[in-house]
């Protein structure tokens, strides 16, 4: 079976810096994949390549076996890819309902679109926000509204860039639950660096380091992997692993 999304030797150079270096990975239909790595590992650049915000310097991106390298963001979205950015990207001047309505690009019939938009809001438990102006919402609500816009058109794949950025521990746990629930209907790629969150949601984890794939395995093996620990511990910032170690002593025996 062909993979839903695959990259082949994907490389992105900025002048002399190679931000993404020969990355090949495949994501199957219905999969939940985490892309992790310390700061500067190339996660964001890879996210931008996958979502058509920048064109890779070399390599290919395949969607169900078809070459989609170099397509624009809107063309990638039309394939059935829902994209959620790190800082919620919203229509501040519009209502929540209108925002979600706009996400249903292919649904031209007004009444059906409205009903579908309301159903999506209902599913995410924020139907009461429908008439509210997006600009007036709290941070957590904004995240959910963006998620509603992403899932409303029933994409085959959802790509989330650091969904827990700026969230409290409690909110992070809830977000993990939401993402696992979404995975029942959509394949998901999550770009993250919060290890605790990864542990809570992931099945397969791809670890990036200095633009390359360091390890790709199930979450327990990845967390136990010496190289991953070195990458996270190696430099100045050791917090992610410590936090993770205290939360999962079994993994780091």
């Amino acid at each position: 079976m062909t993979a839903l999304l695959a990259t082949e030797h994907l490389t992105m150079r900025f002048g002399g810096v190679v931000a993404v270096d020969d990355v090949s990975l495949t994501v199957a239909d219905g999969e939940l994949r985490c892309l992790i790595g310390p700061n500067g590992a190339g996660k964001s650049t890879l996210f931008k390549c996958l979502t058509g915000q920048i064109k890779p310097s070399a390599g290919r991106i395949l969607w169900r076996g078809q070459d989609i390298t170099g397509l624009d963001s809107f063309e990638i979205a039309r394939l059935g890819v829902g994209i959620k950015t790190q800082v919620p990207s919203l229509f501040d001047g519009l209502t929540v309902l209108e925002s979600v309505r706009l996400a249903l690009r292919r649904q031209a019939r007004e009444r059906a679109a409205r009903a579908q938009a309301l159903a999506t809001l209902e599913r995410l438990g924020i139907v009461e926000l429908a008439p509210r102006l997006v600009a007036l919402l709290a941070h957590g609500q904004r995240q959910l509204v963006e998620l509603a816009m992403v899932v409303a058109p029933e994409p085959d794949l959802i790509i989330l860039d650091e969904p827990t950025a700026g969230m409290s521990a409690e909110e992070t746990t809830r977000a993990a639950r939401v993402i696992r629930a979404l995975n029942a209907a959509h394949a998901i790629i999550v770009v993250e660096h919060d290890m605790q969150f990864i542990r809570a949601i992931a099945k397969t984890v791809t670890v990036l380091h200095q633009g390359r794939v360091l390890v790709e395995d199930d979450v327990a093996s990845v967390l136990a992997d010496r190289r991953v620990q070195d990458v996270y511990l190696g430099k100045a910032d050791a917090t992610p692993l410590r936090r993770c170690a205290s939360a999962s002593p079994k993994v780091h025996q």
Partner: peptide
């Protein structure tokens, strides 16, 4: 009309309109 509503959405956030599949 739909065209105008998308136009307003683009004014509000061009990037988001694009990520929703609109050719801005």
């Amino acid at each position: 009309a739909r065209f105008g509503r998308v136009i307003v959405a683009i004014r509000e956030n061009e990037r988001r309109a694009e990520l929703l599949g609109y050719d801005v």
